[in-house]
Design a protein around this nucleic acid. Structure first.
Lengths: 133, 133
DNA sequence: CGTATCCTAAGACAACTGTCGTCACGTCGT
DNA sequence: ACGACGTGACGACAGTTGTCTTAGGATACG
């Protein structure tokens, strides 16, 4: 039956982001958070999106309170991983390095980030194989 | 009428990539290129995708030969820009630097790429504003 | 208890995607 | 001239996404 891979479309991602921020929330709370960010959705829309997310298994709900309380079941990090991986495969020949280069060429880093990058690079080249006996 | 933004779904991207590689191609040529990469689509499917791409204005066609010859009307670079921008906005708070850090942390660069990155960083910090009088 | 509220469930619906089937048409070899 | 064949236009169809309406159940409060 080969279940198709779980995808998270943009509108669902918007509600998921609220859950990441708030840790947990009811439909209404999500709705209000989204209002603050300019997303004017109806209550039903938000409910549908949460429902779809739950069906996909990326959020959980529990009904100890009056209304269902939803929580994220995956981390932002996981979603980032997947999206980046897919982007790199689709447009950068599976070479993350190409994307890095592209990013650096088009967007200057601030000083703090630049030094972080340097640190990482140094680590990387200093000890090529820390696990080797 | 606010026409919705041009999006290029994955399957269309696959055919567009062939056009980027070959510079120009007929439906049948695209079909064959895709076969080589493991994409077993019917002729009609490829034709539909090219048609949709043309409607969106991202490829052009000309019929000097027997069959239409399609050419890309946007560059891979443009598509990369858009996709990356959107990814950064959606998952990295609009901070390209965060994505760079993320990439470097999870994927080691090879030596060549690493030195390229260093070079770019050096340029960046050495002369913050080369255009300034 | 009666009713104003809030909540969920169900489903509707158009647009977009992924994938084709076909039919009519021009072309090419015989 | 004729038939085999490649081509493109048209359209179909299910699944996904974006968004909402509404009906019906639980709650809370006078």
């Amino acid at each position: 039956m080969a279940k198709r891979p779980v995808t998270i479309p943009d509108s669902e991602l918007d509600v998921l982001k609220v859950l990441w921020d708030r840790e947990k929330a009811t439909v209404r709370e999500v709705l209000e958070s989204l209002r603050l960010v300019g997303r004017e959705w109806s209550y039903a829309t938000v409910a549908t999106l949460l429902d779809r997310l739950e069906t996909k298994g990326v959020v959980t709900s529990d009904r100890s309170e009056l209304a269902f309380v939803y929580r994220p079941a995956i981390t932002a990090h996981e979603v980032q991983q997947k999206r980046v991986k897919s982007l790199v495969e689709k447009l950068y020949q599976g070479e993350p390095g190409l994307l890095v280069l592209h990013l650096l060429k088009s967007h200057p880093l601030d000083a703090k980030q630049a030094s972080e990058v340097r640190a990482i690079l140094d680590d990387m080249t200093k000890m090529p194989d820390p696990n080797n006996a």
